[in-house]
Design a protein around this nucleic acid. Structure first.
Lengths: 148, 148
DNA sequence: GTAATTGCAAATACTTTGCCACGTA
DNA sequence: TACGTGGCAAAGTATTTGCAATTAC
């Protein structure tokens, strides 16, 4: 583990992949880029489409394998949108990725609350003996337009 | 909506299903029973297996449809375990179902923190104009035994 | 040049539906 | 009896893998 956290950017992620002995290809860069441009969690198909429109045109299997790799390296994680496929987003350890989801229309908003979880997280880590805690927090409800 | 919350038990869930005009069968009772006996969120397969070992032997499709029904009635919900299939657990409206998951071995613990989310939930509801908010909160980390 | 990576296509897994026999109310 | 429910089997969707061609280093 690094003594000092490096900046979390496409470049730093690429550097991390490289330092794992992985090769940097146009496809992989495109996938990393797509994840960084995301406004909300993406399905593998969405990642593929975004990477495609940015010049790289990775095969679906390539997206799958790259995301899987990044997941193992804790660079991305799955988000629960209560849908039928998996959604992924970056895991910047210094950021919160908490979401607000409309159960009716599927709208997904990224919310930046002053995170009431930090304290609880530390408490839980201590109490249960867990390390490297992160969390996944999603709120589900009915948005304004759908309430009408 | 009932003026007074009834006890959340297999019987009350059965009663709710009945009051929706649904028929109570051995299969459905078995599925409800399985969910109540669960120590952690269950996949459809696990629900099926549990119901089977308790005497009912519902078809997978039956489990799927029953759980889907219960989900629509807000009696169960999906939980994000960052795995490839869906996991379900009961939705007792008076309880929190927050989880602590080990990323290494898959251990899942139900934690009962004094819920620091309630306040945030109300704040978010107001700020974003959402109604009927509920949330899903999971902590991911490395458990004590896996840290060795 | 060597070994990792990619695309293709197939295999697997999970989810969802149609239809008729069956059982509950 | 009437209509909701269950099982079977198939269809639909998402995930995962094998292998030969390709490409980064």
């Amino acid at each position: 583990m690094a003594a000092k956290e490096t900046l979390f950017s496409p470049e730093s992620v690429i550097a991390m992949l490289r330092s794992e002995g992985l090769r940097i290809t146009k496809k992989r860069s495109g996938i990393v880029q797509a994840l960084f441009e995301a406004k909300e969690p993406m399905s593998l198909q969405e990642i593929q489409a975004s990477a495609a429109s940015a010049g790289a045109s990775p095969d679906y299997a390539t997206v799958f394998r790259t995301v899987q790799l990044m997941e193992q390296l804790h660079l991305v994680h799955k988000v629960n949108l209560r849908r039928s496929c998996s959604y992924y987003e970056l895991s910047d350890p210094r950021k919160h990725y908490d979401h607000l989801v409309c159960k009716e229309c599927g709208l997904v908003l990224l919310i930046d609350i002053p995170c009431p979880i930090g304290d609880a997280e530390r408490k839980i880590a201590r109490q249960y003996g867990f390390r490297n805690l992160s969390h996944s927090l999603e709120f589900f409800g009915t948005c304004k337009s759908c309430a009408d």
